[in-house]
């Protein structure tokens, strides 16, 4: 067993070029990618964080951060991308009005496909730019109107990037605690993830030759 107590799926959405991939890479690898195009084959990135809980103990949390794989370019994100996300980060570029104008379209998609209780965060990225078009207050108001958290970041300078993901992790832990049983990691039989190796067993042991190991 690996040493982590929670695993959360965080997905990023927003127009092309707002810096989604840069946010993830800055956070998971501490780098600001210089060029585009090196991300072929990357599905999601993982980072394990240490979070101090309300009782003062620190716990390991694994964030699985999913990128759009470019499908946002022509508005063709698969619905399955939104399914079972614990948190959703909607990103716009503070120096590019059209990326802010597109937010309502993104909200519609979220409403259609994501779990209604998903944690939503609005992020205005690229605060390092000096040609700001969207005042902080406008972003804040939009977030408030749509029941979202709000933060401005700069992947280039690293500003607020750590904060963004640490706050998401802390909030998701709190949410998980409020649930009965508390841990999002507990395995349960009703939903099957095919990748779980422990599921694979030989039928003969539980059907024919008789140990009945699966029927207990």
């Amino acid at each position: 067993m690996e040493d982590y107590k929670f695993l959360f799926k965080v997905v990023l959405i927003g127009n092309s070029g707002v810096g989604k991939t840069c946010l993830v890479r800055r956070f998971t690898q501490g780098v600001f990618p210089k060029g585009q195009g090196a991300t072929i084959g990357v599905d999601f990135m993982i980072k394990t964080l240490e979070i101090e809980n309300s009782t003062g103990q620190s716990e390991n949390v694994k964030l699985q951060i999913w990128d759009t794989a470019g499908q946002e370019r022509f508005r063709s994100i698969t619905q399955s991308y939104y399914r079972s996300a614990h948190a959703l980060i909607l990103v716009y570029d503070i120096s590019c009005q059209p990326t802010f104008d597109a937010l309502s379209d993104w909200i519609r998609e979220i409403q259609e496909y994501a779990n209604p209780k998903v944690l939503k965060i609005l992020v205005g990225n690229k605060t390092d730019r000096d040609d700001r078009e969207i005042p902080v207050r406008v972003g804040e108001e939009f977030a408030k109107a749509h029941d979202m958290y709000f933060l401005e970041t700069s992947s280039k300078q690293g500003e607020n990037v750590e904060k963004l993901f640490y706050e998401i992790a802390a909030e998701l832990i709190e949410q998980a605690r409020r649930q009965k049983g508390g841990l999002s990691r507990t395995h349960h039989s009703s939903v099957t993830n095919l990748g779980m190796k422990s599921n694979i067993s030989n039928f003969q042991s539980n059907c024919c030759s008789g140990s009945g190991s699966n029927n207990n």
Partner: peptide, 28 residues
């Protein structure tokens, strides 16, 4: 994800990318 080497020349990764068995993501 941990098998992918990303094409940046001088990045300093601290081995934070590791994926084991996926935990179920849907609450029971």
């Amino acid at each position: 994800p941990e098998e992918i080497i990303i094409g940046d020349d001088d990045d300093d990764r601290e081995g934070n990318v590791n994926l084991g068995v996926l935990a179920d993501l849907v609450p029971e």
